[in-house]
Amino acid sequence: MQVDPSGEAPVVVCNLTKTFLDQSRGTIRAVDGISFQCRESEIFGLLGANGAGKTTTLRMMSTIITPTSGTAKMLGHDIVKDPSGVRRSMGFYSASTALYPRLTARETIEFFARINQYPEEKVQARVNSLVERFGITEYAGVRVEKLSTGMKQKVSIARTIAHNPRIVVFDEPTIGLDVLNALEVQKAIHDLRSDGRTVIFSTHIMSEAEKLCDRIAIIHRGRILACDTLAGLREATGLHYLEDIFLLYVRGPA
């Protein structure tokens, strides 16, 4: 995929590569030269099976790990040269990012707003608005350890956007959730796009990608095999269902 590294797009990923040295299997290319761009007010989906390289890509983009080669820019901040700038520009949410059990919901949002350098004088107002927006007013003063899974999801999304980032990354956010909680998360992602944010969203659930994503990149063995809107993918393959399209790219024609 051709990308313009100096382009205006909020997210520009250019030849991103990550290799791991596995003690028993040798060098593994978890991500192999991935490139894509995301636009404003867009939900960009990374669709792939387990081990396809989705999480590694998103972890590089959120500066948890460093790429072996290639780079990415988030609102112009380079993930290698300016990781702090990247982190302040984005919110990262995944199944493995947990909340501090001994903080209250309000304290959690407050802490993440401050640590991401949200203007101090606006912190309280921001916290209040998020508490109201996510409907957590009733239990804002309750410790996270005492909240139900659904409540925790809401607090977690609220803390992800506590500093009002323009880019939000969701790494398999509905994994392990029941249908109702998964729907809540999907609604929150949809709302974030409506706010004008860029949402990068990884999943292996076809229906979720079909329902939420404006554009979908099919990723397999560390490479992007296709990247287009759902309509574009249908047109390119002549298939209707995303599952069939996915299998066609991953396994080849039957």
């Binding site: 959120s62 500066t63 948890i64 702090s84 982190r87 302040r88 990262f92 995944s94 493995s96 990012t97 947990a98 909340l99 501090y100 059990p101 993440f112 640590i115 991401n116 350098q117 803390r159 500093h163």
Partner: peptide, 14 residues
């Protein structure tokens, strides 16, 4: 173990 370290290192703190 709890996953909060990953949450913290994706924040703006160095």
């Amino acid at each position: 173990e709890r996953g909060t370290l990953e949450t913290l290192i994706t924040s703006g703190a160095g």
